[in-house]
Design a protein around this nucleic acid. Structure first.
Lengths: 186, 186
DNA sequence: TCATGAATGTTATGGACTAACATTACGTTC
DNA sequence: GAACGTAATGTTAGTCCATAACATTCATGA
């Protein structure tokens, strides 16, 4: 028997239909009514699963992992180094299939202004979590906030560049971005 | 006779009413119909002046100045130093009255998720301009992009912190944020 | 004065969301 | 496996943001 409940199944069905339609005819040109119909469900149901149209794309298990992993690093490393190494180890855990899906979503976000705007809200949660951990490790609160926001900005830029350029690895792109922050530190 | 045309006057009237109402009862709780009515004008007119509700707050002469000033620095300085010094000289040109208005707007943005999200769109234009200038100065395009996004993330964080904390100067806050990026470089 | 174009008003429409209430489907207990 | 309670979904109605097409007022110079 399936592990997934009915709720989980319709949710993922909605997510898949949304992604496919967005890729096919664009985010703005696709109405949630169309998505709902494609998933064999009502408009209302869509909003019960994803609070807003953008959430159908932006809901991924990616951001929480970052915060988790950064805070798992030894506390005596400096903030930037912790972020870099934390991300490196986190990304090595993704499968090929995962990467394909992540790339599809990130590319869509990278190409859609409304999605990029909505993504910052996700980002802020991650950023706050990272900053909190850094501050708990003894960093000045303001410094922690800036460091967290800065690292995420670099990672986001790397993600968008990677999604558009097929001959780069995710880890390569992110590594290169973080190297820009890190220049002069070694 | 007034220097400002009728168009400019209704525009600024709309902007002032919007800011006041947003501060009074919140951004989401204020409809553009209310703003329009307060300004003695139609809802339609609002949208002709500001393409969207958020633009009533986010339209300021701030972002363009940043890009302008960063690119005005001598090309042989390194990217980060150019950004820091460029901003420093740009901000010193603001009057007390300007600072009060900037603070009101930034505080509203800092407190309103929807406005923070919409602000990134503004940000991207500035970021692209900065990156272009950095790349024209010989920097690798990807590096330029990351540097631009990173600096703006730091500045934005500083802006939000400054708007909420009355005993800090704008330039102090931004300086402190950029110092976080700069640590280890000197 | 009147003619021209800019600024604004009117009306109609569509799409994103919310609220309140009705209904169906699912799983659990007996 | 039948009844019951609840989770999941449907229905309806409405608000607000935003756009389009067309009409109207207002300012300004010939």
């Amino acid at each position: 028997m399936a592990i997934s409940s009915k709720r989980e199944r319709t949710r993922s069905r909605l997510g898949e239909c949304a992604l496919a339609l967005f890729e096919e005819r664009g985010f703005e040109a696709t109405s949630v009514a169309q998505i709902a119909r494609a998933a064999g469900v009502t408009e209302m149901t869509f909003f019960r699963h994803f609070g807003a149209k953008e959430q159908a794309v932006l809901t991924d298990p990616f951001d929480p992992v970052i915060a988790e992993v950064v805070s798992a690093r030894p506390r005596d490393e400096e903030p930037l180094a912790r972020a870099v190494r934390g991300l490196r180890s986190a990304l090595s855990g993704l499968s090929e299939a995962d990467l394909v899906m992540v790339r599809r979503r990130v590319r869509l976000v990278a190409r859609t202004p409304a999605l990029r705007a909505a993504a910052v809200t996700q980002n802020e949660v991650t950023s706050a979590a990272i900053a909190e951990r850094l501050a708990a490790g003894g960093a000045d609160p303001f410094t922690a906030r800036v460091a967290a926001q800065t690292v995420l900005a670099a990672v986001t830029t790397a993600l968008y560049a990677w999604a558009e350029d097929p001959h780069w690895t995710l880890i390569e792109s992110i590594g290169a971005a973080l190297d820009v922050l890190d220049q002069g530190h070694d």
